[in-house]
């Protein structure tokens, strides 16, 4: 599973509280869904999240994202206006839509890749949220990258047997394609959920007693800073 090793192998330079990461995520989706009208503020927000990702040692990933962002920015400002009609609209759409989603995806990555499940649970328990929400929530966030891994290996296995999933198969044989996609994905999900619950039961998650936790979950200077900036951006987008 590698649920714990994932976070621990990437110890950040400055430790960040999961709660401030969540505030950042909410801020990113909130501001961008409302629509940041000013390009400048969009860039500032992007740079801010990039720095935080660097802090979490997600270096390759961040560089990829920065390059993508720069290209889209360039297309939006310089290239798209050169074409008129459908092509221009298409270019503009692609460059804008994906650019707006980038910070959301990145802040989600920050949560998913640099937080361990136990950090998550400890942080939530401090907020006195009921266990019935905390456990599904933290499992869900940690499970997104696993789905992606599973999906890649399922695709490989299917190619090996000569089954290809493409837009053509989705249009021509939707039912069959759906069955081919859903059944292995769900099978692996069921298996992982069994394994994970066995693992967490053995770590004492099922007990009635209050859990203790070695990791200290406290707000540091960086966290206050992140929360302040996030709230600032939310307020800014509300005003516009």
């Amino acid at each position: 599973m590698g649920d714990a090793s994932f976070g621990f192998s990437n110890r950040p330079f400055i430790w960040m509280d999961p709660r401030s990461k969540i505030v950042l995520f909410i801020a990113s989706s909130f501001t961008l869904m409302r629509g940041i009208s000013k390009v400048v503020s969009e860039i500032i927000f992007f740079v801010f999240i990039s720095l935080l990702l660097f802090n979490g040692k997600q270096i390759n990933y961040t560089i990829k994202m920065i390059v993508t962002f720069a290209i889209m920015m360039y297309v939006d400002i310089n290239v798209a206006s050169m074409f008129s009609g459908t092509l221009g609209v298409l270019l503009l759409t692609v460059s804008r839509v994906f650019r707006i989603f980038l910070p959301i995806v990145m802040s989600l990555t920050l949560i998913v890749r640099t937080t361990t499940v136990s950090e998550f649970i400890a942080a939530f328990e401090k907020m006195h949220i009921t266990k019935k929400i905390v456990i599904p929530f933290s499992v869900m966030f940690r499970f997104f990258p696993t789905i992606k891994e599973q999906w890649v290996s399922i695709q490989n296995a299917m190619k090996f047997r000569g089954i290809h999933i493409s837009i053509r198969t989705v249009v021509c044989q939707p039912m069959l394609t759906m069955e081919y996609v859903m059944v292995p994905l769900l099978m692996s999900a069921v298996k992982i959920s069994d394994e994970l619950s066995a693992a967490s039961l053995s770590r004492g998650l099922g007990g009635d007693k209050k859990r203790s936790c070695i990791t200290k979950v406290v707000f540091g200077y960086l966290d206050y800073f992140v929360v302040l900036i996030s709230i600032g951006f939310m307020a800014y987008s509300m005003m516009n």
């Binding site: 456990i135 599904p136 499992v139 997104f144 959920s193 994970l196």
Partner: peptide
């Protein structure tokens, strides 16, 4: 009653549902 095992299943299926 919901047990820890069920809560974990809920998280995993929640992730699956949202992705799909």
């Amino acid at each position: 009653k919901l047990k820890t095992k069920d809560l974990i299943s809920a998280g995993i299926f929640g992730a699956m549902y949202i992705i799909v």
